[in-house]
């Protein structure tokens, strides 16, 4: 063999793959699909009311000069029930929250609101998930912070917990 360095190549490859594998085991995998829309303007949309007695939601409602939260939820989603008290807390602290209900029926939404409370100003119904797709949202629940000019400023994936409330309020403050 006139190329001795070549003999060490397999060992180097093993070391590299081993390092990669250890990295994969040690660093927790980020299974979430983050929206690439953060930092951009809201897409145009206009959704009908999700149930009787609430108002529908359009992108213009969200760009009226005041920063607010946009909650993506569904009555059939269990973590959405878990985050209901924290949405309530956010509202009490002065946050304005709009919502989009995903693949939901009016009667289910009404039942959900009466059981877990209604912290929302407006609730649009996205029964075909078309707006969810435009937002780059990948599941329920998710909460966005929308700037007063209709820019998406932040995306929170998963249910809101107690520790997230101050963080969201702070970010909302910064936006205003």
């Amino acid at each position: 063999m006139n190329r001795p360095w070549l003999l060490w190549l397999p060992l180097a490859v093993v070391a590299f793959i081993g390092g990669l594998a250890i990295y994969g085991l040690v660093v927790p995998k980020d299974d979430m699909v983050h929206s690439a829309m953060v930092g951009r303007k809201l897409p145009e949309f206009s959704l009908p009311p999700a149930t009787e007695g609430v108002e529908g939601l359009s992108s213009r409602d969200l760009a009226d000069g005041k920063p607010r939260l946009l909650n993506i939820f569904a009555s059939w989603c269990i973590p959405c029930k878990a985050e209901a008290p924290y949405l309530e807390a956010l509202k009490k602290s002065g946050a304005e929250i709009d919502a989009i209900a995903i693949r939901d029926k009016p009667e289910d939404v009404a039942a959900f609101l009466s059981e877990f409370g209604n912290p929302f100003r407006r609730i649009g119904s996205d029964s075909e998930m078309g707006v969810q797709l435009k937002l780059g949202s990948s599941g329920v629940p998710e909460t966005y912070i929308i700037g007063g000019d209709g820019t998406i400023l932040y995306q929170h994936i998963g249910d809101i917990r107690a520790e997230h409330v101050p963080m969201l309020l702070e970010k909302l403050q910064e936006a205003g």
Binding site: A74, S75, W76, C77, I102, R103, D104, K105, S127, E128, M129, G130
Partner: peptide, 10 residues
């Protein structure tokens, strides 16, 4: 149906 809600498919 339980885990994904129900709505019209486009």
């Amino acid at each position: 149906s339980l885990a994904q809600g129900s709505g019209p498919t486009p």
